[in-house]
Simulated assay, not measured.
Amino acid sequence: MLRSERERQRRAVREAAGWLALLEAGEASAHELELLQEWRAADAEHERAWQAASQLQQRFAAVPSRLAMASLQPADRGRRIALRQLLGLAV
């Protein structure tokens, strides 16, 4: 894969993450929703990035809140490793 192609993909992923964050914050206006649709339609790479970000968000949403909160708390090294592995399996 060419470097410029990788950069293009990374940019699309960053932009998709920004759009997803805006939607998750619940602050997207009707105009911004329209801009999102235009962004997705403008480039197949945008749509691929959007789909990947949406799927990842859905997977994280499926993680039980107790487990998610536990992973944010300070823990000993062994517990962190176990939680990381468990989260990896969930994803």
Score class of each variant (00 low, 15 high):
residue 2 L to R: 14
residue 4 S to V: 06
residue 4 S to N: 10
residue 5 E to L: 12
residue 8 R to P: 05
residue 9 Q to S: 07
residue 12 A to R: 08
residue 13 V to T: 07
residue 14 R to T: 07
residue 17 A to M: 11
residue 23 L to W: 04
residue 23 L to Q: 12
residue 24 E to Y: 02
residue 25 A to P: 02
residue 25 A to N: 08
residue 28 A to G: 12
residue 29 S to E: 07
residue 29 S to F: 07
residue 29 S to K: 09
residue 30 A to S: 15
residue 31 H to Q: 14
residue 31 H to S: 12
residue 31 H to N: 04
residue 31 H to E: 15
residue 33 L to K: 13
residue 35 L to K: 09
residue 37 Q to A: 14
residue 37 Q to S: 13
residue 37 Q to D: 15
residue 39 W to P: 05
residue 40 R to I: 10
residue 41 A to P: 01
residue 42 A to C: 01
residue 43 D to R: 05
residue 43 D to G: 00
residue 47 E to R: 12
residue 50 W to G: 05
residue 52 A to W: 02
residue 52 A to N: 02
residue 52 A to G: 02
residue 53 A to Q: 15
residue 53 A to V: 15
residue 53 A to M: 15
residue 54 S to G: 09
residue 56 L to M: 08
residue 58 Q to P: 00
residue 59 R to Y: 01
residue 60 F to S: 06
residue 66 R to I: 12
residue 68 A to S: 10
residue 72 L to D: 01
residue 74 P to F: 06
residue 75 A to Y: 07
residue 77 R to P: 09
residue 77 R to Q: 10
residue 78 G to C: 12
residue 79 R to S: 08
residue 79 R to E: 09
residue 79 R to Q: 13
residue 80 R to Q: 10
residue 81 I to P: 01
residue 82 A to H: 05
residue 83 L to Q: 10
residue 83 L to G: 00
residue 84 R to G: 03
residue 88 G to Q: 12
residue 89 L to E: 05
residue 89 L to H: 03
residue 90 A to L: 15
residue 91 V to S: 06
